[in-house]
């Protein structure tokens, strides 16, 4: 399978602290990967590298068919649907859900070109695909946390991305909304054949459709590969630094403190 993302010996140091070191990872086109690990493991830094918000201090990154350094960053970012962690915005700002989704079309359209009927059609189509057509005229600040995340997902889809990167997308959602959100992502990945990279610190949030995981600990890649072979008691105890037991129910992995 053709790689969508390939990292070789990648390292990052920010303000004299090493955040990532020696990362080797290949993610194929159309695959659904999760990058998991405890807080401070370097997960968000890893995905911020991919859309050029941070430059690697060492190693090579190949993304969407070209070395990262050969991409004009604005063009690369237009191909990546990115949901940043804890996106802050002014809740009183006068913008509707539709206007936020249209931001996804803004970069693609380019400077000095107006949004067209096609842009509106795509934006409304993405909202319809996620079941949020009824929210389009609502101000974003009046929506619930789960609804806002769906609007952001629709905005990312409106970019017609080749790669979808989700940085802790369910961290502010209740368990029911989190499960519903990840099921939606899973369906999109399956139906559209999207390459998805999902960052999480909660193993339980991994949907059954996520086939592969990369486990990061203290800036190093502890393990990477098919989820079913990796998410066992030994690996996850080593990942989190204390004994855990693992149960698999309905395709999901649940962690409990204390090993048996």
């Amino acid at each position: 399978m053709k790689p969508a993302v390939s990292l070789s010996g990648v390292g990052v140091a920010l303000r004299h602290a090493t955040i990532l070191r020696g990362i080797d990872l290949t993610i194929g086109e159309g695959e659904f990967w999760s990058i998991a690990g405890p807080n401070g493991a370097g997960k968000s830094t890893l995905v911020r590298l991919l859309n050029g918000f941070i430059k690697p201090g060492a190693g090579q990154i190949q993304i969407l068919g070209k070395p990262l350094g050969q991409w004009e960053l604005v063009r690369l970012r237009r191909k990546i649907g990115y949901l940043p962690q804890n996106l802050a915005f002014d809740e009183g700002l006068p913008v509707s859900a539709l206007e936020v989704i249209l931001i996804g079309r803004t970069g693609r359209r380019g400077l000095l070109r107006r949004l067209t009927g096609e842009d509106y059609r795509v934006a409304r189509g993405c909202a319809g695909e996620l079941g949020i057509s009824g929210l389009l005229e609502r101000p974003l600040g009046t929506l619930s946390g789960g609804e806002r995340q769906l609007v952001q997902l629709a905005r990312a889809l409106a970019q017609e991305p080749e790669l979808l990167i989700l940085d802790e997308p369910t961290s502010n959602l209740d368990p029911r909304a989190a499960a519903a959100f990840m099921e939606t992502v899973e369906r999109l990945q399956r139906d559209r054949g999207l390459t998805v990279i999902n960052v999480t610190h909660e193993i339980a949030s991994l949907p059954p459709g996520c086939a592969s995981v990369a486990l990061l600990k203290a800036g190093r890649l502890l393990a990477a590969g098919p989820k079913d072979g990796l998410l066992n008691r030994e690996t996850l105890s080593a990942l989190y630094g204390f004994p855990v037991s693992v149960e698999q129910r309905s395709g999901r992995f649940h962690l409990f403190p204390g090993g048996n």
Binding site: Y82, L87, I103, T106, R109, L112, R155
Partner: peptide, 23 residues
Amino acid sequence: MLFYKEFRAVLFSRTLAAAVGIR
């Protein structure tokens, strides 16, 4: 009028504007 869509994105979130490929 010329930069309305970009101004709107930047007002909403500079982080997001950068992430979708706006200068």
